[in-house]
Design a binder for these strands. Structure first.
Length: 745
DNA sequence: TCTCTCACTTC
DNA sequence: TGAAGTGAGAG
């Protein structure tokens, strides 16, 4: 574990940073002639892995380095090394700091997200993990081309509420269940240069959402308890653990660092895209979302009406045959009026069940059936932001930031600004202004600005984390149809490390000593597990997980940095660390595409503690485990077969349907749906789909009648009544092919 | 509500 | 060709 072996040092040049030291150097000169350490540097020792930044005269480099390496391996204090070596301010050794960057992040597939958000967010989570859809993709710009960056994503609770889907609306159903262990996902390409990041769309499609707390693919990295972005332990993993029926907000982070291990002490730039907020569900509640995803997710193509292999197509074909037969039968019996009525009904429903063009996914139903499509959309909008919504739960785009959730965290320096959003508005300008006075007049711990496309830059006064969290949530009231711009929060972890009149030094020795104790870089803030608010807040969410860490860290708990340093000097360190099961898990890192640092500071969740966590958490959330068999909400939640967002297709017998909607649809649908729009406009597609349209009608009729009628316009109700009669007629015939699904070819 | 299986899809 | 992702639907 020697310095020279870890980080190649070129004699006469600077050696770069170390993750245990603040990313940014303290202002004062850290230089100290070895052997003549200043008073404030009483017990600094060279950590085994070379935490100090060193600059060595070329001629002396070799012997000095030998000494240093020896010291590092033996724990000899600097004072014994002689006067030749100098510690230099880290600042001068941080080439990364020399080039300013100004990252901007653009959310890709924004149109899809907008639709997603507008219709009520819903994201499926499964035990084995389900990918996010829409996929979280961003495009970065403004990065330093040569600097290396780590791009991360995590998902935080958006509020403290539990939700339920009632009357086609998401409603607050109580207080949130205990939070799941925090987990973050590092983009597998990290670290990479800014040039590399900017050359492509950064996608996080491999991130999976799960409700399985027993998932053991998490590996912890401890952050300082006062870290601006992440506090306490965060685990890495490809799966994020979420609570079902809770609202979440994905976050995107850009960290300028070339090593994962430097994350805890690196500067974070955090970006929020409010339209990516969602409610985690184990089964789809909102058919709008279901249809939106079916229409846009390639893997769900089989469920599209246009899909070649749609499972129910056979059933629909059967239904179509039955319907044709029925029509003929009626005509033969002189019921042409009914047919006409039925046709009207079909015209009404056709827009909702149109096949091919449904991929556009734009709500067109509301255009013709405002009582259905629009009312729901508005209702959901009202629901989310209206009186029924949990006040505390209204996340502010500004307070979705970590400081909000980590109440009581020290003031942090953060920059809040809305990044460039082409075509977007500085959506936060108003909301930030609506923030409470507390959030506006607190010390300038957070500054915010809006950077539109050359837009005015606005700054709002900073605020303290806790107060800002509660207050700014009130500013979260987002008009559902408003254009979104990302919120970014830049946090400088080093700011937290700087303490007292000699910022940085008071902390660095502790870190160094800590490393010395353990012989492993733990990334544990000396005070992180002190029995205080930090600890309790930490354990509140993931106590069992931290049990191991905190227990192992007992030796450092309650020690300030001075004590730590003293302890280091006295060689008291190893005792506590020896109990820690710190083993590098390279295979897991490899699974994430992470380069294993030679320091190896990642350690896994001990499986036993994961199990304990699962038990604890499941106990806390056990209300959802055992359900009365009669409380099957499926009976109360009819599954609608129609698609309120499909683009209607002109059909042979009703060709006037909504063809005019297509241009706007295509425009609204954006690039993702352009193809679908084109398909919709294609005569061929019409010809092909008209048949399935009829099928869709039948399908619609077979299942949607329960909830459709209340929202339909009068003439549609009449048609619905007619359709229902047809449905009843067909349903009996439908049962047979349905049951024989497995037997069907 | 949750979990599992199924048929279907993409890659 | 098969692994993996997908919603439907049953339990």
């Amino acid at each position: 574990m020697s310095l020279s072996m870890r980080d190649p040092v070129i004699p006469g040049t600077s050696m770069a940073y170390h993750p245990f030291l603040p990313h940014r150097a303290p202002d004062f000169a850290m230089s100290a002639v070895l052997g003549h350490q200043p008073p404030f540097f009483p017990a600094l020792t060279l950590p085994p892995n070379g935490a100090a930044a060193l600059s060595l005269p070329g001629a002396l480099a070799k012997p000095i380095m030998d000494q240093l390496v020896g010291a590092a391996e033996t724990g000899i204090p600097f004072s014994s090394l002689g006067p030749q070596a100098h510690l230099r301010p880290l600042k001068t050794m941080e080439p990364e700091e020399e080039v300013e960057d100004d990252p901007k992040v653009h959310l890709e597939a924004k149109e899809l997200w907008d639709q997603f958000h507008k219709r009520g967010t819903e994201m499926v989570i499964t035990k084995s993990g389900r990918r996010m859809f829409p996929p979280f993709k961003v495009r970065c710009s403004g990065l330093d081309k040569k600097a290396k960056y780590i791009l991360l994503m995590d998902i935080i609770a958006a509020d403290d509420c539990r939700y339920k889907f009632h009357n086609s609306r998401w409603m607050v159903a109580g207080k949130a269940d205990p939070e799941m262990p925090k987990r973050m996902y590092i983009h597998p390409d990290s670290p990479a240069t800014g040039e590399q990041w900017m050359s492509k769309v950064v996608t996080f499609h491999k991130l999976k959402l799960t409700n399985n707390i027993s998932d053991k693919h998490g590996f912890t990295l401890a952050f300082p308890s006062d870290h601006a972005t992440w506090q306490g332990n965060y685990s890495f993993g490809t799966q994020t653990i979420l609570n079902s029926m809770h609202k979440y907000q994905p976050r995107f982070h850009i960290v300028r660092a070339n090593d994962i291990l430097k994350l805890p002490y690196s500067t974070f730039r955090t970006y929020l895209f409010p339209e990516t907020e969602f409610i985690a569900v184990t089964a789809y509640q909102n058919d709008k979302i279901t249809q939106l995803k079916i229409d846009n997710n390639p893997f769900a193509k089989g469920f599209r009406d246009t899909g070649n292999g749609r499972r129910e197509k056979r059933k629909q074909l059967t239904l179509q045959s039955m319907r044709v037969f029925d029509e003929r039968h009626k005509k033969e019996n002189g019921t042409s009026d009914e047919s006409s009525s039925e046709q009207a009904a079909f015209n009404c429903f056709a827009q909702a069940s149109s096949p091919a063009v449904s991929t556009v996914g734009t709500s067109n139903l509301k255009d013709l059936c405002p009582s259905e499509g629009e009312s729901d959309a508005e209702a959901e909008s009202k629901e989310e932001h209206g009186p029924e919504a949990c006040d505390a739960g209204k996340i502010s785009t500004t307070t979705s930031e970590e400081p909000c959730r980590d109440k009581g965290s020290p003031a942090v320096k953060a920059h809040l600004f809305a990044a460039a959003e082409p075509g977007g508005r500085p959506r936060d300008s108003g909301r930030l202004d609506k923030a409470s006075p507390d959030s506006r007049h607190s010390p300038a711990t957070i500054s915010s600005s809006t950077r539109g496309l050359g837009a005015e830059e606005r700054r709002s006064p900073g605020r303290e984390g806790a107060a800002a969290a509660a207050k700014a949530e009130e500013a979260r009231a987002l008009p559902g149809k408003e254009a979104f711009a990302p919120l970014t929060v830049q946090t400088d972890a080093a700011a937290h490390l700087a303490q007292g009149p000699l910022p940085g030094l008071g902390f660095a020795p502790g870190l160094a000593g800590q490393q010395f104790f353990n012989g492993h870089p733990l990334f544990l803030h000396p005070g992180q597990f002190a029995m205080g608010s930090a600890f309790s807040s930490l354990t509140a969410g993931m106590g069992p997980l931290l049990a191991t860490v905190s227990g192992a860290s007992t030796g450092v708990s309650g020690l300030d940095s001075t004590a730590m340093a003293s302890a280091a000097a006295q060689g008291l360190s190893g005792a506590s660390a020896a109990t820690l099961p710190f083993h590098l898990q390279q295979h897991v890192l490899a699974s994430q595409g992470l380069a294993m640092s030679p320091f190896g500071s990642l350690f896994p969740y001990p499986y036993t503690y994961m199990a304990a966590a699962a038990a604890a958490s499941s106990a806390a959330a056990s209300s959802s485990v055992h359900r009365h068999p009669f409380l099957n909400l499926n009976t109360m939640r009819p599954r609608l077969r129609y698609s309120p967002y499909s683009i209607p297709v002109p059909v042979p017998d009703g060709g006037s349907l909504l063809t005019t909607a297509l241009p706007s649809m295509a425009a609204a649908a954006g690039p993702l749906d352009a193809k679908a729009a084109a398909l919709a406009a294609s005569p061929a597609s019409v010809a092909v789909d008209s048949g399935s349209e009829l099928n869709s009608r039948s399908s619609t009729l077979s299942s949607s009648s329960v909830s459709l009628s209340p929202k339909l316009c009068p003439e549609k109700e009449a048609a619905t009544s007619e359709l229902q009669s047809i449905q009843r007629l067909v349903s009996g015939l439908e049962a047979k092919p349905d049951r024989s699904r497995s037997a069907s070819p």
